[in-house]
Design a protein around this nucleic acid. Structure first.
Lengths: 181, 181
DNA sequence: TGCAATTATATCGGATTGATATATTTTTTG
DNA sequence: CAAAAAATATATCAATCCGATATAATTGCA
């Protein structure tokens, strides 16, 4: 599944511009997929070439024209076919966890702050989700919202209970920073 | 943090070939970072050019030479500097969750099977982690191992308790598959 | 003996990111 | 009220990275 397919999916929910599709990725699909302009605009171009979406230029008085994309019938079939395929494995990359794997090379204060910030960030994310969860939504969106909360909550609890494992492993003081030649 | 940096990190744990670095990504860093040969070999070449790692060709009687990489002193300093930077945000992509977001377009049987397979997969992953957790390891590796188990467990529980939200939303029967022209 | 898996290096096309450029309008804030 | 900031909107580019593929010998096992 690539970004082209996800754009098709977003367009099954209604017509949208490239800009609006990006916002949907950020606001509603943040938990599951990321996409930048650099992939969305080329994706829409390709989809248009393949006639899986159509594009109408909406004149605006003062602003430049808006390009509004709609999914076509063949786009819907294509999307259905893609959805019926077995989904590929998750791709995950966490610089936070990667850093923790080398906690023994870092000053303990750095490791502690890192974990504190992570917990604060996850709490922040949960409260953002809380805000969105109450708004009128489909069952699917509620499912995803609560899924995010469950995972974030599990992470916070794990970090609180096990952070000592890393903190006792890290360098005391910040010797490492002073060992530089 | 890019793959070059992670390769440096892996080399702080001991000398290794490109092949062994790939194995480390798969076996020990699976939960936090993914890297393919297509990025590892070019990364090692670049690191060698920058003198952050050194490379010795180990002659082998019958096999082709093995290229064993070692981190250099300046490589260690560079790695430390990178670790002291604030880690970037997680990058996550789940085709599984993306598919669930369109559950209402899919036959209910497909959605149910998808969730069943996901649960089975997470259980499988937990049991793999269990095996590795007991082996002699650093505190950090135990931390990561148990982190993975905690998150996978939370996901399983959430799916079991909330799958009905999606299954009641999906198409009954598989009409959709027959609507094709 | 024969077949599959492992060890080992390497490259290529294509997908994707993050940054940047441009320009107008709306909202916030001092 | 004016200035600053954020939002609306499209688009491209270099750098990064993935997945597939090629090659080839060895080891394990059935």
């Amino acid at each position: 599944m690539d970004i082209r397919t996800l754009c098709l999916g977003i367009l099954t929910m209604g017509d949208a511009t490239g800009y609006e599709i990006k916002k949907t990725f950020e606001e509603r699909l943040e938990l599951i997929f990321h996409a930048s302009y650099g992939s969305i605009y080329p994706a829409l171009k390709q989809l248009t070439d393949e006639a899986l979406v159509s594009c109408r230029a909406e004149m605006q008085e003062k602003r430049p024209d808006k390009k509004v994309y709609s999914i076509t019938a063949s786009g819907r079939y294509r999307f259905f076919d893609e959805m019926m395929k077995k989904p590929g494995t998750d791709r995950f990359r966490s610089e936070f966890l990667a850093t923790l794997m080398f906690a023994h090379l870092l000053p303990v204060i750095t490791v502690s702050e890192l974990i504190d910030e992570r917990i604060a960030d996850r709490l922040q994310k949960i409260s953002t989700l809380d805000g969105r969860c109450v708004e009128k939504q489909t069952e699917r969106e509620k499912f995803l919202c609560n899924y995010g909360r469950a995972i974030y909550q599990a992470e916070i609890e794990y970090l609180k209970e096990n952070r000592y494992l890393l903190e006792s492993d890290a360098l005391f003081g910040n010797r490492a920073a002073h060992e530089r030649p």
